[in-house]
């Protein structure tokens, strides 16, 4: 039993079911054109869309739930997110790549995932 109604799946069977429904639907679109896409790409998308417990879209509206104001600003509608961040006195802990690039810090992924801790001489 399947449905392409992600919302109904979410309501009835929970977020994991919604996630797999998204995977099925997205890969179904590619399959219609016989385009091979690595499942990791699609599961990444599905993870992003569902990791908050509900499901959300992939656009500037839904990036608003992101904790990092700098990441939001560097995505789209810079001015709106800047205004919001200013009004609410928002802060950024500089964890995600977009925010770290803004201040020129190496991103905390890949080769930047570890750091050297050494007593100052």
């Amino acid at each position: 039993m399947t449905t392409n109604d992600i919302h109904a799946t979410l309501q009835t069977y929970g977020v994991e079911a919604a996630r797999s429904a998204i995977i099925n639907e997205v890969s179904g679109v590619f399959a219609a054109y016989s385009i091979g896409v690595d499942p990791r790409h699609i599961s990444l998308i599905a993870d992003y869309m569902t990791f908050e417990g509900g499901y959300k879209a992939f656009n500037r509206k839904c990036i608003a739930t992101n904790a990092s104001p700098l990441a939001k600003m560097s995505f789209e509608s810079t001015c709106k997110f800047l205004t919001d961040a200013t009004i609410y006195g928002d802060y950024d802990v500089l964890n995600n790549p977009s925010a770290r690039l803004v201040v020129g810090a190496p991103i905390l992924a890949g080769t930047g995932i570890c750091d050297v801790l050494q007593e100052a001489a």
Partner: peptide
């Protein structure tokens, strides 16, 4: 290009290019 380097995990190359 930025996205590609992030995905590749080369943080310091990215920092070199952008900073």
């Amino acid at each position: 290009e930025r996205d590609a380097l992030i995905a590749h995990g080369v943080s310091y190359l990215l920092q070199d290019r952008l900073l």
